[in-house]
Simulated scan of single mutants.
Amino acid sequence: MPHHVDAGLATTLKRVAATLKSADLPFALGGSFAVYAHGGHSSDHDVDFLIREQDKEAALTALAGVGFKTEQPPEDWLVKVYEEDRMVDLIYRPVETPVTDETLRDCEMISVEAINMPVISATQLMVHKLLSYSQHYCDFATGFPVARSLREQIDWNRVRRETTGSPYAEAFLILLDRLDVVPLPGDQAMGVGG
């Protein structure tokens, strides 16, 4: 973990992970802390866990039981828990796609702040990042550090396959090619992710 990660946030992350683990609820770390766990860089500092929708109530109950404040916001794709002013998102439908057992299998066990936990794969992180871009939110600056720092761990063919429908993802992948970060297929240097 990089030095500039807030120590309080890291502690909160550990408490949420430990609580979900002891409640036997399947989960995976996502978002910027997952990027850090893979050794990458991210411009956000949010704590996101992926859970299945059917585990939402059980997760909130378990976390409320150890003193977290819980919130069901109007958005129908996540719930939130708070420890003091530190917020953690429990996301069950990132980028309009429900979290399934398969989503949670696409993980690596990584020691994050000395707790072993499932972390979503670098490839899945990149897919989620690209599918989050829309006409309302299209800040490519959040994707570049992730793409650059994790590019060796990312299956770029799969990223292209799973983001086919998105013109924003396509534009981002063209930029990565032009900036010599990741070549598009058909270019000579196709060693990446193969």
Results as ranks from 00 to 15, higher is better:
residue 184 L to Q: 13
residue 159 V to T: 01
residue 174 I to Q: 07
residue 70 T to D: 14
residue 108 E to F: 04
residue 182 V to E: 12
residue 142 T to K: 12
residue 151 R to L: 05
residue 177 D to F: 04
residue 124 Q to E: 02
residue 84 E to G: 06
residue 53 E to M: 12
residue 160 R to F: 10
residue 57 E to T: 15
residue 141 A to W: 01
residue 62 A to L: 11
residue 185 P to N: 07
residue 10 A to R: 04
residue 11 T to N: 01
residue 179 L to C: 15
residue 139 D to M: 00
residue 158 R to I: 02
residue 14 K to N: 07
residue 35 V to D: 15
residue 193 G to S: 07
residue 147 A to E: 03
residue 10 A to W: 00
residue 49 F to W: 04
residue 5 V to L: 04
residue 26 P to H: 06
residue 129 K to F: 09
residue 116 N to L: 14
residue 130 L to P: 08
residue 105 R to C: 02
residue 135 Q to P: 01
residue 74 P to T: 10
residue 96 E to T: 13
residue 54 Q to P: 15
residue 101 D to L: 03
residue 43 S to D: 11
residue 156 W to Y: 10
residue 26 P to A: 11
residue 11 T to Y: 00
residue 91 I to D: 06
residue 31 G to I: 14
residue 19 T to P: 01
residue 117 M to R: 00
residue 177 D to E: 12
residue 124 Q to V: 02
residue 129 K to L: 06
residue 180 D to Y: 14
residue 142 T to W: 02
residue 172 F to M: 14
residue 62 A to G: 15
residue 111 S to Q: 13
residue 44 D to E: 11
residue 138 C to F: 01
residue 95 V to F: 03
residue 180 D to R: 14
residue 30 G to I: 10
residue 81 V to G: 07
residue 140 F to K: 04
residue 103 T to C: 01
residue 187 D to H: 10
residue 65 G to W: 13
residue 181 V to Y: 06
residue 95 V to Y: 07
residue 46 D to E: 13
residue 5 V to D: 05
residue 163 T to H: 07
residue 78 L to Y: 13
residue 130 L to W: 07
residue 48 D to Q: 11
residue 115 I to T: 06
residue 98 P to C: 03
residue 81 V to Q: 05
residue 184 L to I: 06
residue 2 P to Q: 14
residue 141 A to T: 11
residue 77 W to Q: 13
residue 82 Y to S: 05
residue 98 P to I: 00
residue 133 Y to K: 02
residue 134 S to V: 10
residue 167 P to D: 07
residue 111 S to F: 04
residue 154 I to P: 11
residue 121 S to K: 00
residue 18 A to K: 02
residue 95 V to G: 06
residue 149 S to P: 07
residue 31 G to K: 09
residue 83 E to H: 02
residue 64 A to C: 05
residue 4 H to P: 07
residue 20 L to P: 14
residue 126 M to V: 04
residue 23 A to V: 03
residue 3 H to P: 08
residue 150 L to M: 08
residue 33 F to M: 11
residue 162 E to G: 04
residue 106 D to W: 00
residue 27 F to A: 12
residue 19 T to M: 06
residue 177 D to R: 02
residue 53 E to K: 14
